[in-house]
Computed example of a mutant assay.
Amino acid sequence: MTTRIDQRFADLKKEGRAALVTFVTAGDPDYATSLEIIKGLPKAGADIIEFGMPFTDPMADGPAIQEAGLRALHAGQTLIKTLDLVRDFRKSDDRTPVVLMGYYNPIYIHGVERFLKDAKAAGVDGLIIVDLPPEEDDELCLPAIKAGLNFIRLATPTTDDKRAPTVLRNTSGFVYYVSVLGITGTKAPDLKSVEQNVTRLKGHTKLPIAVGFGVKTAEQARSIAKSADGVVVGSALVNAVKTSLKAGKATPETAKAVHRLVSEIAQGVRS
């Protein structure tokens, strides 16, 4: 079964360019503004959208995404509302792939079978669950694949040739290569190391490889797009939300600030 993610990467391969994958926290700074941001991402240049599922203990995320998660939670965002957000987005966009990114705890509480059914019905295409290792594939990965969702795995600079086959075994959609060690958005990627590791991982998989963590500028995106099949931008967009707020609330500038930055980075990916 071909998913929207598979189709998008196949289309971009024909175009001869990398994908721009954009991450925003669902419900940040509030539901209505979050929907406005997400609806404008494809026009601004996003090829795939990751919705971050707010969680109280986001261990892999840096300060920017942690703060975004707290803003969303304080505004009343829940897992059910995140699925509602996908559903509302799908009313006007049936083509752009949507990935939910986050942690297993909210899914476990919702119930795996119920979650997969609800996610598929809402229009979700893939999952990135950062705290479920491949040794736990029976828990969510295999049921997700059976339900018709891509399960996207993270590979890191420490995913050596011995570990890579285990990590990639049940991965689908694309591989998310974490370009730096540590949490999101705190360091700039070492572009030479990224190129070497992407090339090495391509020896283990035919899946597209998208590179994220620390990408902030069009120039970085341009450099990464030379060797990778996709570039992921997250913390920079979440920071654009934060700097647009007044007293913690959305302003008319909030969605525009995110869309402007996506347009800039998209030009880097496309050049």
Results as ranks from 00 to 15, higher is better:
residue 34 S to T: 09
residue 138 D to M: 01
residue 243 T to R: 13
residue 19 A to D: 11
residue 134 P to Y: 03
residue 27 G to A: 03
residue 176 Y to I: 05
residue 116 L to Q: 10
residue 225 A to K: 03
residue 166 T to V: 14
residue 108 Y to W: 15
residue 259 H to A: 12
residue 67 E to D: 14
residue 205 T to F: 04
residue 123 G to Q: 02
residue 135 E to N: 07
residue 228 A to Q: 04
residue 110 H to K: 15
residue 82 T to D: 07
residue 168 L to A: 10
residue 121 A to L: 07
residue 227 S to R: 10
residue 220 Q to W: 06
residue 29 P to S: 07
residue 116 L to C: 01
residue 27 G to V: 01
residue 244 S to W: 05
residue 177 Y to R: 00
residue 53 M to S: 00
residue 208 P to Y: 04
residue 122 A to W: 11
residue 265 I to P: 12
residue 245 L to K: 07
residue 74 H to R: 15
residue 241 V to D: 08
residue 65 I to R: 12
residue 9 F to D: 12
residue 132 L to D: 08
residue 212 G to V: 04
residue 83 L to G: 01
residue 71 R to P: 09
residue 235 S to W: 05
residue 32 A to M: 07
residue 17 R to H: 13
residue 46 A to P: 10
residue 144 A to Y: 11
residue 68 A to E: 09
residue 20 L to A: 13
residue 25 T to F: 01
residue 209 I to S: 05
residue 35 L to T: 03
residue 160 D to A: 03
residue 110 H to A: 15
residue 186 T to L: 14
residue 71 R to I: 08
residue 53 M to Q: 00
residue 118 D to H: 05
residue 170 N to F: 02
residue 250 A to M: 00
residue 249 K to G: 02
residue 91 K to L: 14
residue 145 I to M: 14
residue 174 F to D: 06
residue 171 T to L: 09
residue 161 D to I: 00
residue 162 K to W: 11
residue 2 T to R: 14
residue 86 V to T: 02
residue 196 Q to D: 15
residue 20 L to R: 08
residue 79 L to W: 01
residue 48 I to F: 09
residue 109 I to Q: 15
residue 109 I to E: 15
residue 267 Q to L: 14
residue 164 A to E: 09
residue 194 V to E: 08
residue 56 T to L: 04
residue 82 T to K: 01
residue 104 Y to F: 15
residue 99 V to M: 10
residue 260 R to N: 14
residue 164 A to I: 09
residue 110 H to V: 06
residue 46 A to C: 13
residue 229 D to R: 00
residue 96 T to P: 03
residue 197 N to R: 06
residue 256 K to T: 13
residue 238 V to L: 11
residue 10 A to W: 00
residue 58 P to S: 09
residue 166 T to D: 15
residue 157 P to Q: 07
residue 175 V to M: 11
residue 168 L to S: 05
residue 110 H to Y: 15
residue 74 H to E: 15
residue 248 G to A: 05
residue 86 V to Q: 00
residue 153 R to K: 14
residue 20 L to G: 11
residue 188 A to V: 05
residue 261 L to S: 07
residue 152 I to V: 08
residue 249 K to A: 09
residue 268 G to W: 00
residue 269 V to L: 01
residue 156 T to E: 05
residue 8 R to G: 13
residue 135 E to W: 04
residue 113 E to D: 15
residue 33 T to R: 06
residue 70 L to C: 09
residue 197 N to Q: 13
residue 144 A to E: 06
residue 262 V to R: 12
residue 128 I to Y: 00
residue 50 E to F: 01
residue 271 S to P: 12
residue 183 I to E: 14
residue 198 V to Y: 06
residue 189 P to I: 02
residue 181 L to H: 12
residue 108 Y to P: 08
residue 171 T to N: 15
residue 34 S to Q: 06
residue 158 T to K: 13
residue 5 I to H: 01
residue 172 S to K: 10
residue 117 K to N: 14
residue 193 S to G: 12
residue 214 G to D: 03
residue 221 A to N: 01
residue 224 I to S: 03
residue 180 V to F: 06
residue 197 N to C: 03
